[in-house]
Each structure stands twice: as C-alpha cells, then as structure tokens.
C-alpha cells in the first residue's frame, strides 16, 4: 500500500487552484486564437482580442482571469492501493481549496441558498467544493479541478428525451440550450454533453466532458461526427463572442456517454448540457 501525506495533497491542490485561475488553459488559448483568426464579425473580433489580451495580463501578473473564480469542482480517482496519512482525502481537498482561494486572492463565491449570506467565516472560504469520487485500480490519486463560474452554469440544462427522439432530438435540445442562453454564458463556449445513464448521471458526465482537451476527437467515430454536427448547428445561430453577433460561438462540443459504450435505460434517453465559458479554468494532477 502506497502512502501519501495529507499535507502534500493540500499543497498540490492549493497550487493547482492558484495557477489555473490565473493561467488560461493552453487548449483554450489555442482555440481562442483560432477563433480570432476565423471570426468574420468586426465587433466579435474586437471582443476576442480583449479576451486574448486579458489572458496575457492575467498570466504576467498572476491575476485571476475572471473575477468569478467559481465553485470548486473536483473529479477524484483514488487508486485501491493508496492510503492517505495524517487525515482524510476529503478533508485535504477542503483544506487545499480554502488555502488556494484565500492565499490566491480569489473570490469567495459560495453563499446560503436562501439568505444569500457569504458564510466564509463559518463554513470556510469558498467552501464547500463539489467532489465526485471514483475508486480505480492502482496506487495513484488523480485529481481534476475546475473553477466553474455562475454565468455559464446558470444556462446549463438536463432533460430525459423519449428514445424515439434519437440523435436529431439531442441536436435540437443542445441547440435550444445554446440559443436560449445567447450572450449570458460568455461565449465563445465549450459545450459538454452527457448522454445516457440516469437523469443525474447525464449531468455529471456533461460536466466531466468539459475536462477533455479542445481539439481532441471522441474515440467513438459516430460520436465524433455528432459532436461536429452539433457544433456546426450551434454556430449557425450567429451569437458570436459575448453575444454581439458573429460566426464563432461554439469552439468545441464534447460528448461523454455512460460506459461501456453508450448505455441507458430501455425507456429513457437522458441528455444534459453543461456550458463552459471562454474563461476555461481546468487542471489535473496525479499524486
């Protein structure tokens, strides 16, 4: 059994949070540069220029790319042959999150649902994070982290379609979500689509799909084709950068399905759409 120290996990999470909220993910940077080249609308091009300039300033000054430094989201794969010494893995993630947000001068963006009070002194600074644990073979701990902003989360949707709706129904649903969202989620966007499983699991998959590097293809050729088709359809909407009208609205569509293959219940076709703004702040580490 491999042993990992509690403090090492806290530090790794703290550092990952501070770095990724100030340094635009390289795949997103490349996609935005590409969009800047391809954008046909003058006003959207000017917006993309500001977005790229912002990334440069943020990187140079280690200043948050966006003031909404998000709810902290974690997908954690824990090896069966690894043990944490000095505390629990969950506590280490909480402590690393609090340290990262506090010491990185990031915003404490969690609050009580009803009073809307910021409980940073009671519950903790930007706590709690959302954590999904999975147990896998091996002796490593893999941690994926995203700072997920509210604007793009607010327009994300899940549904359960009738099986007869098929691929056409899925394309229509995603297109409607992006169309209704318009300028609000800060386009250009990455669109995570979870298909299959249950109502809730489709949503989890749609969020996890956002971790895939932009520019990589879905290993299932049929799904890769569906991703391209959805992207093409969404880009016909003309929403453009920050919704000011243009050709580059969706940079990538990433589909995740319920494994093995693309499974679901015989009566259902669950579909969820998680929208990611252009300020994509994703990172992963293996301990």
């Amino acid at each position: 059994m491999r042993v990992v120290k509690y403090e090492d996990i806290v530090k790794a999470i703290r550092d990952m949070i501070i770095y990724s909220t100030t340094h635009l993910a390289p795949d997103m940077k490349k996609a935005l540069e590409e969009a800047y080249k391809n954008e046909k609308s003058e006003v959207s091009k000017a917006v993309l220029k500001q977005i790229l300039d912002n990334a440069k300033i943020a990187e140079e000054e280690w200043k948050p790319l966006c003031q909404d430094t998000g709810l902290a989201i974690f997908f954690v794969k824990v090896g069966e042959d690894v043990k944490v010494e000095g505390g629990s893995l969950k506590d280490a993630i909480y402590e690393g999150t609090e340290k990262g947000y506090k010491e990185g001068y990031l915003r404490a963006s969690t609050c009580d649902c009803f009073t809307r009070a910021n409980l940073k002194d009671k519950i903790g600074y930007n706590l709690p994070p959302v954590i999904y644990f999975d147990i896998v073979p091996g002796d490593k701990i893999e941690i994926e982290y995203a700072a997920k902003g509210g604007g793009s989360e607010n327009v994300s949707r899940a549904t359960v379609l009738a099986p007869a709706a098929g691929k056409k129904g899925i394309i229509e649903f995603v297109k409607k979500v992006i169309s209704d969202a318009g300028p609000n989620p800060c386009p250009p966007l990455v669109v995570g689509v979870g298909i299959g499983g249950s109502f809730d699991y489709a949503a989890v998959m749609s969020k996890h799909a956002l971790f895939r590097d932009i520019g990589t293809k879905n290993p299932d050729p049929e799904l890769a084709e569906l991703e391209e088709e959805i992207k093409k359809e969404c880009n016909k909407l003309g929403i453009g950068a920050m919704g000011m009208g243009g050709t580059e609205t969706v940079l990538a569509v990433h589909i995740e399905t319920f494994q093995p293959g693309r499974m679901c219940h015989i009566a259902s076709l669950p579909v969820a759409v998680n929208v990611q703004c252009h300020s994509s702040r994703h990172a992963h580490i293996t301990i």
């Binding site: 917006v47 500001q50 977005i51 300039d53 912002n54 300033i57 943020a58 000054e61 200043k63 948050p64 790319l65 966006c66 003031q67 604007g151 300028p183 800060c186 920050m242 919704g243 000011m244 703004c277 252009h278 300020s279």
Partner: peptide, 13 residues
C-alpha cells in the same frame, strides 16, 4: 453597456 465578461484582469487596469 456591455463589457467583456471574463476580461477581468484587463478591465482592472
């Protein structure tokens, strides 16, 4: 007026 969402470090200047 619309400002560019996510251009937070640039606007701070």
């Amino acid at each position: 007026f619309g400002a560019v969402g996510g251009a937070a470090a640039l606007i701070a200047k």
